[in-house]
Design a protein around this nucleic acid. Structure first.
Lengths: 197, 197
DNA sequence: CGACTGACAGATATTGAAATCTGTCAGCTG
DNA sequence: CAGCTGACAGATTTCAATATCTGTCAGTCG
């Protein structure tokens, strides 16, 4: 975190902002703090981001994109679609639960950020639903799934599993029985997707 | 709201409290306000409810019980289990959405109350899940549903439809496409419950 | 005697003055 | 001249003094 004399870039500002958010939390993280962490005046930060809100939104996007990236590998995996679907949902749940459990304060920070950036979140959700659509589409092609509208089914699966990935349920993810609940919901949804012979 | 000279009863206090909450909102509703509305000293209120928290919890319970009561009729209806299930879920969604849409401030007030009364909410959810269990159990008996554990299936159905009854999603209930999303999730779940011939 | 009151101590909320922050921009600097 | 600085106006937040509230209880009243 030394105020190196490298040129000031959007990337460096975003890294410093994440650090300041980690240290001070979402309420007390100011752009003056970010500038101080970089050893520049806060005016320089405004050269790269028009407003504080824009800066926070960029940080939010980065964070959400990292999550999407982690899951995209599973979509392309060489497995039966049903297994890919189960694995994808399990990975989404596991990733969220790990983040919430390991560093609750940081998770709370990002929850605040996502709450104030509806647009970035919508794009992220669209992204995840697209990944799900691909898996279900693959299942339709192999004949394992019977979905007349894979996109709508993907949306339904995503919404129906909200309890296991939406941050508003984070405090319940460590309660006993959650694993079983997750399995029951996924089983029900997979059963609903299957082609009925 | 005249300070009648009827005897002071828990029931009257609860009614006055609801009125004060409606008027002032959850943050500014004090037990002094409640006492003033009843024309008594606040000490008298403490004769019926040990703490302010207990009073608020009692109000919350009343409100939640009214919702449960509205749905219980559907459970006993004389219909095919699948239709009863669909109707019950639709009624739950409709009731929540109507409350949130008609008087958003009052709905927000009760959302705050439920947030601070985890116990009352848990009991309410157990109650609703029991109603769902009965419907699914009936479906198993008629052979329409294939559930090895109706209680677990009921829990899964309730959790999977959270997006359409959990207050944390209230602001999204009026967005276009919500009806279709609801239908898609319910169809998927019902399909998952059906006995596969 | 049992239901109610009102004064009280400690906890919580409100308020307004002072401090800090956001966003701009004229001017400095390499 | 492109990138940065720092002073500035208006908006927002902080903080401490002040007011209100919660919960108790000795005492009043019918």
């Amino acid at each position: 975190m030394a105020p190196t004399s490298e040129t000031l870039t959007a990337e460096r500002i975003l890294e410093a902002t994440e650090e300041v958010l980690r240290r001070h939390g979402p309420a007390k993280a100011t752009v003056v703090d970010v500038a101080r962490a970089l050893g520049v005046s806060h005016g320089s930060v405004y050269r790269h981001f028009r407003t504080k809100a824009a800066l926070r939104e960029a940080v939010t996007k980065r964070w959400l994109d990292r999550t999407s990236g982690q899951l995209s590998g599973i979509v392309a995996a060489d497995r039966v679609p049903e297994d890919r679907l189960r694995e994808w949902l399990a990975a989404l749940f596991a990733a969220k639960r790990r983040k919430a459990g390991e560093d609750p304060e940081l998770f709370a920070t990002y929850t605040v950020l996502t709450d104030e950036n509806g647009t970035a979140v919508s794009e992220h959700i669209t992204d995840l639903e697209t990944q799900l659509t691909r898996i279900i589409q693959a299942g339709v092609e192999t004949g394992d799934f019977a979905a007349t509208d894979p996109e709508a089914s993907a949306r339904a699966v995503f919404q129906a599993t909200g309890r296991f990935h939406d941050p508003c349920y984070a405090r319940e993810w460590e309660e006993p029985g959650t694993e079983a609940d997750f399995a029951a919901v996924v089983d029900l949804l997979v059963q609903g997707l299957r082609r009925t012979p």
